[in-house]
Amino acid sequence: MVGLAKEARARHGTLAASLTQERIVFGLTIVALAVFSLLLPGFFSRQNLLNLARNVSVLGIVATGLAIVVIGRGIDLSGTAIMAVGAAWAVTLSAGGTPETLALLLGLGLVVLMGVANGLLVAFIEIPPIFVTLATGLLIFGIGQFVLIRTLIVHLPASASFMPLLGQSKIAGVPIQILVAAVVMILAHLFLKYLRWGRFTFAQGDNIETARLTGIKVRPLLVGQYVLAAVIAYVGGILLAGANPTFSISVASAGMMYDVILVVVLGGVSLGGGSGGMSSVLAGTLLIGTLINGMTIMDVSEQWQSLVKGFVLLLAIVLDSALHPRDEETTRQNDI
């Protein structure tokens, strides 16, 4: 026992052990910030930094929802579709004369339904979450495009007040978007750290069979996670819809989902489940925000940006796999 304790202390003491992925990413963010500040004129200004944060706040919010699912060893590829379609439907409804509050609540109801659908398919039909959400993502987008909204671009009505307030106004010079993102992340953090279901999510992500055997009701928990992810994505969607007079649901199909996964994986929320937290999401969001901001200032074309993001994503996955190697004992055969 003494030996083990000593060994553990020794391991914790080494520099390598203290280099968690999260810390590395924070470090890289600081390096990137420093480099861009030195090289790019106007980068290190209050205005640009707020801009940077504002630009990635929606990304951070959707990533928060995804992170909760990923911690439970799932994945939600339908997040951006839920975000876009839910918000766009609320906008369409309020443009059609429905009071804004009611429209927002109806939108909330819709995304809860979508989350429940994801959760039921994963928990009860037992389809791997990757396929469930891949398919429901397409399905939700299709329903939005052809049934609920019938167009790709929606216009924010003049009568709307709450959505523009969230999307465009500032408190003490800080855009509300950033504040909302911060609140969502803090709430998610509290949920994961202090609520029973949050702790259970970690247990389930570590080993779902063990979690089930210890008496956790895994199936309702799974459904809850997907609903939570959907609702959080919806909040992001409202921010996005409120930010501009027009809102296109094609954001969902334009590779935003890859960015969301990138943020989550980059920060150290392992896809193997059971590890990471909100600080990881924050780290990933900030690094991606900095990179995108820097590249935009440098006038890098969108194609090059997505190439860079693709490589960073690949790098993040490789890093994740190196730091959290697949546990062959708990890996299920069809875990792909």
Binding site: G255, I261, L271, S306, L307, G310, L313, I317, I336
Partner: peptide, 13 residues
């Protein structure tokens, strides 16, 4: 490394 994510990333690239 998990196939789904690797090929997702290489698809993007």
């Amino acid at each position: 490394i998990r196939a789904f994510l690797v090929t997702l990333a290489t698809l993007v690239i």
